[in-house]
Amino acid sequence: MKQSNWKVLLNGIIKENPVLVLVLGTCPTLALTSLAVNAVGMGVAATAVLLCSNIAISLLKNIIPDKVRIPCYIVLIAGFVTIVGFVVQAYAPSIYDALGLYLPLIVVNCIILGRAEMFANKNSVLASACDAIGMGIGFTLTLLVMGSIREILGAGTWFGWQVIPDAVTPMSIMTQPPGGFFIFGVLIAVVNVILAKKGKKRKVSGCGACPSAEHCAKASEGGC
């Protein structure tokens, strides 16, 4: 039963939010959310890659043989990541500096490979594109929320504007790794509460949605 493309898009924002529900793409979520502007930068870059890769893979889904599909996806995704990287470097160098190492790491962002495996190679180009946009928006929004919380609490600013008066000393730990873990955990807890209230069960989480899940059969006992 095919969902309407619009529903597909909305899906990615809330119901199957890649970060908070599927718990994919955790690395950039934690790393790039110390400042709201960096969070948005990462979100947009990842969305761009996701969109391109979903479209490309959906277009090529009948040509790519099953045996080599993972390496093919990887090459395509890596290519798009590099191209997006160039574009960002040329036109938004300060964001490029902020993203640093995490820009090439978008390649191994489970969200992108995961959506390619779970959606793009089974659906039409348009549907794949909508899925990508939805997931991307969900990703970016989540990152924005996390980034905002961490920046406001940790530095007293939002997108660089002073939000909390200077006199109040911010909780700098929020902008540092422990703060990232903490806020992330709290956010997921909040989402759990919302889901529970709606009576919905939590969807497959963590590595389950990862394309390597099939290899993971044994590891699933270990808690994957």
Partner: peptide
């Protein structure tokens, strides 16, 4: 553990404390 924190959230909070130690 409170129901909403079970699983991923409490793991992350625990991680944050370990991260503080490493700081």
């Amino acid at each position: 553990i409170p129901a909403c924190f079970k699983g991923m959230p409490i793991t992350l909070v625990a991680a944050s404390i370990v991260a503080v130690a490493f700081m």
